[in-house]
Design a protein around this nucleic acid. Structure first.
Lengths: 312, 312
DNA sequence: CGAGTCGATATTCAGAACATATCGGCGGTG
DNA sequence: CACCGCCGATATGTTCTGAATATCGACTCG
């Protein structure tokens, strides 16, 4: 039995007339008679009563037609569902990101995405760059936002584009000696207790800092001591109560509370770029849609993406 | 798109391998490749990722396959539903009957039917013979049980079989002069107030009675007076409280209460037969099943039915 | 009783689905 | 690094089936 039989039976039930039903189906009358007869033979049951006043379904026909309607509805739903999934209008996007991405990049991109693709289920999880890279390679994420291009095993399977640049700023409590300064020098920082992201989780940032502060070794080994904090709000909170000098990207200003001061670091120090990564072989249309929106919003991202997508 | 495409896609998703899926489908590998390709072309979306480790559905493929499974399930349900309806295992039977049918005939027949065909929805409605005949012709009933073969316009479209015979008995209260008698004569009845079924609703019975009592006219015109009662229990109730002498079929004994006496009428008077009627052109398998059961239970009905059914 | 309508049947034809044979690409292996 | 084997895609021929045309038989209606 093919779905054609269902369509023919439904048309016949609707028009109650072989000739008109066949015309509505775009075929001649004899093939319709044949197909209905074949269907009835296969089922071993008469589905229609041919009377002088028209063709009417039997009890068995009624039962059959009710199911047939649902079956055809499921089939057309299969087509439309597949199409929507292929166009990225539905599906799932699992996104891992570092906290600072929540300050500037994600709010606008996510807002647009949610408005454009309301039926896409979004999975959002804040995590370190290292973890998001690993999760991406393990297939647990579809997109990762972190600092610095992913490195190490498997990184060649990922595509990364720069979606933002930041320079280093220092955050101090209002009572701190630096509070009145618009800028602090690297020399000044060397004697301070520093609040930074954990070295193991953000290796790129940690390496930058270590180099910046004139040491080849780990940041935690610095004189003056180091406190590791996982996210922007913790850094700001610790700085506000005088624990030390928080160091982080300039976008920290967005989250700055009234009781802290943000100072430029002099000379200006560029941080590893905010980088968006995804699996090179990932053909998900949802991902493509998200990248499209990112492309629109972040001029300069476009070319980098084009180069990769064009190579597919 | 045909259901074949759904079956092929599901097989491919199950085996994750074109060759094995084709073997499971009983076809060669090239046609499977072709049909899947045609399906993907029609949908405008890739449904499967062909990798070195196997064939896996894409996101769109997952969405499609979920619907496809349901569609095919509906199709096979359509087949089985139609088959069950055709075999009379499901469906509906609307039955109109006179009250006395509830006393002997229906209890056993209905019991068997409900046990054999639990999924058939039964519509049971007590009504007069006249009304059940009209409802049968109007298509509001599938089967009618009454007294006397239906007559009048449309009766030739009905098939009737005798399913029971009864003779007339008289029902009186325990205090009635007849109470001690085993039998009463027609002469004795002539002076009594009688309780009978309404003439308009049970014309066959009324005609019999009128003839019996030696009058060409209507029963209500009889000296002694007449009360019309619709059902057996009312006749018995009125008789028990001394309203008069109830007249009805012998099966009234089944419903007789302790405070009434049932007397044979002498000479014995045969009542119009209990008749089961249905539309001659009704091919409903549920009706056929009900008739089968009736046939098994009522010997003698068989030949009458065979004659009709054989003529189809 | 003849005309008209409707569904079934017969026959032919075209297209689609399938089978056989072969090619191209990708991994694994000596 | 070349070779081999596996797998899916492609090419080509064959078969089968669904559809069109022509016609028939049954029933209705004027």
């Amino acid at each position: 039995m093919e779905s054609r039989h269902l369509r023919y039976a439904l048309a016949l039930a609707e028009h109650q007339h072989f000739g008109r039903a066949a015309a509505a189906l775009g075929i001649a009358q004899p093939p319709l008679s044949q197909q209905i007869a074949a269907l009835e033979r296969e089922l071993g049951a008469r589905l229609f009563d041919r009377t002088a006043r028209g063709v009417f379904p039997t009890t068995a026909g009624e039962a059959f037609l009710a199911r047939a309607r649902r079956a055809l509805a499921e089939m057309s739903a299969a087509v439309s569902d597949a199409g929507r999934a292929a166009r990225g209008e539905t599906g799932r996007l699992r996104l891992g990101f570092i906290g600072s991405a929540l300050l500037e990049l994600l709010p606008s991109v996510l807002g647009t995405f949610i408005r454009d693709r309301p039926e896409v289920r979004l999975g959002l999880q804040e995590m370190s760059t290292r973890r998001s890279t690993a999760a991406l390679l393990a297939g647990e994420l579809d997109l990762a936002i972190g600092r610095g291009a992913p490195r190490g095993a498997g990184a060649e399977d990922l595509v990364s584009v720069t979606v933002g640049r930041d320079h280093l700023v220092a955050v101090v409590g209002a009572a701190h000696p630096f509070a009145g300064q618009a800028r602090v020098s690297l020399e000044q920082l060397k004697g301070q207790h520093l609040i930074v992201a954990p070295a193991e989780e953000e290796p790129t940032v940690a390496a930058w800092l270590a180099g910046l502060l004139g040491e080849g070794a780990e940041v935690p080994a610095r004189a003056g001591g180091v406190t590791e904090a996982w996210d922007a709000h913790t850094i700001i909170g610790l700085a506000s109560c005088g624990v030390g000098v928080g160091l982080g990207p300039a976008c920290l200003r967005v989250a700055a509370r009234p009781d802290v001061r943000v100072c430029e670091v002099s000379p200006r120090v560029e941080l590893p770029e905010l980088v968006m990564s995804f699996r090179a072989q990932d053909r998900s249309p949802v991902l493509a849609a998200f990248l499209d929106i990112t492309r629109e919003r972040c001029p300069g991202v476009a070319e980098r993406l084009e180069r990769h997508l064009g190579a597919r």
